[in-house]
């Protein structure tokens, strides 16, 4: 070859606790947390809907806070605790939000659902949403093209223990 190959930046070792399990990865710095989860840890429950922080399908909890994993570099998360949709149910029992999403038919195609549920889990932990209007506003970072919004609000209210 006339010219040298174009070398990609070196991989960096990264430790994450994902759904309670410690994982070590060696990743090129450009790998987002979303791609690390989907492509490197086979946790495809977290979805890629836009890859630009515009849809919320990639929402996961990092140290308990909801974030867009598509705009997060995995290398910057070294040492973080990450919870994905796969980590919400315990011992086969669905998380109350998961059950509520089924009960209220809060999804159709299911593609935004993981992000909606993780986002709703973050919303409940934040404690700023007290009524339907506040839920709607604080869930507006999660697009649902099937248009399940009223049912999503109902599901979150069910999980909050409000009829």
């Amino acid at each position: 070859m006339a010219e040298a190959a174009h070398q990609i930046a070196e991989r960096i070792p990264i430790n994450l606790v994902v759904n309670g399990v410690g994982r070590t990865l060696n990743l090129v710095p450009w790998t987002t947390l979303l791609d690390a989860l989907r492509d490197h840890l086979a946790l495809t429950g977290t979805k890629k809907g836009c890859d630009h922080g515009q849809c919320g399908a990639c929402t996961v909890l990092v140290d308990g806070r909801r974030v867009n994993s598509c705009l997060t570099l995995a290398v910057m998360m070294d040492g973080a605790e990450v919870t994905t949709v796969e980590g919400l149910a315990s011992d086969g029992t669905l998380h109350p939000l998961q059950q509520a999403f089924i009960d209220q038919d809060a999804f159709q195609c299911g593609y935004c659902t993981s992000g909606q549920i993780c986002s709703a889990a973050g919303l409940l932990a934040e404690g700023h949403a007290r009524d339907a209007g506040e839920i709607r506003e604080l869930m507006s970072g999660n697009l649902c093209r099937c248009g399940a919004y009223p049912n999503i609000v109902a599901a979150i209210q069910q999980a909050m223990g409000r009829p």
């Binding site: 994905t84 949709v85 089924i102 009960d103 038919d105 999804f107 299911g110 659902t113």
Partner: peptide, 13 residues
């Protein structure tokens, strides 16, 4: 309720 609901809310789908 949707029969594929559990797969979709757990990320298994």
């Amino acid at each position: 309720s949707r029969v594929d609901g559990r797969a979709k809310v757990t990320g298994a789908a």
